[in-house]
């Protein structure tokens, strides 16, 4: 089997990984690094957004990124968003707004929100809904998720 050596930054820590080619970033995060915040909910088809991570600050579906594609790039997962034991203001807003039920979509939602607010610190509701349209949630009907994003934005709480 062909192997690859990949250098990348994962949650601010440099990594060198020797791995079989053809694996996805999602597999590597979950299996090799034990970072299970990114979920697989659609079978690796990029339909649900539950595996959303930030790649050089852009929200991507980790199930659609081959590990070779992260060479030289920065990967941020939900585990790296805030120091251990603390919540990032976006996470705190999701908690406070009641935007979390089963929670399976939450890490992806939070990171999609982070990408949105980094580009657009004060989005209107339409921009929020559009930014989250690739992240499915079956529990909440999105209402409180949209409210959480608004809450985080209103407080200007997205300092990087």
């Amino acid at each position: 089997m062909k192997t690859l050596t990949v250098h990348f930054t994962l949650n601010d820590a440099p990594q060198t990984l020797v791995t079989a080619a053809g694996r996805t970033l999602l597999e590597v995060l979950r299996q090799d690094f034990g970072l299970t915040g990114a979920k697989d909910a659609c079978g690796g088809e990029g339909e649900c957004g539950a595996c959303t991570v930030l790649l050089d600050g852009e929200a991507v579906n980790a199930c659609l990124v081959l590990i070779g594609q992260v060479e030289g790039r920065r990967v941020l997962t939900i585990e790296g968003l805030a120091p251990a034991g603390e919540l990032h203001p976006i996470q705190a807003a999701f908690v406070a707004a009641g935007a979390i039920q089963c929670g399976f979509c939450t890490p992806g939602m939070v990171l999609a929100t982070k990408a949105l607010l980094d580009h657009t610190p004060h989005p209107d509701e339409n921009e929020i809904r559009t930014a989250l349209a690739g992240n499915l949630c079956r529990c909440t009907g999105y209402t409180k998720i949209v409210a959480a994003v608004q809450m985080a934005a209103d407080k200007g709480q997205n300092e990087r």
Partner: peptide, 11 residues
């Protein structure tokens, strides 16, 4: 606030 919310939010 549900007590599992923070752990769900931070992965």
């Amino acid at each position: 606030i549900r007590k599992d919310a923070a752990a769900k939010a931070d992965g």
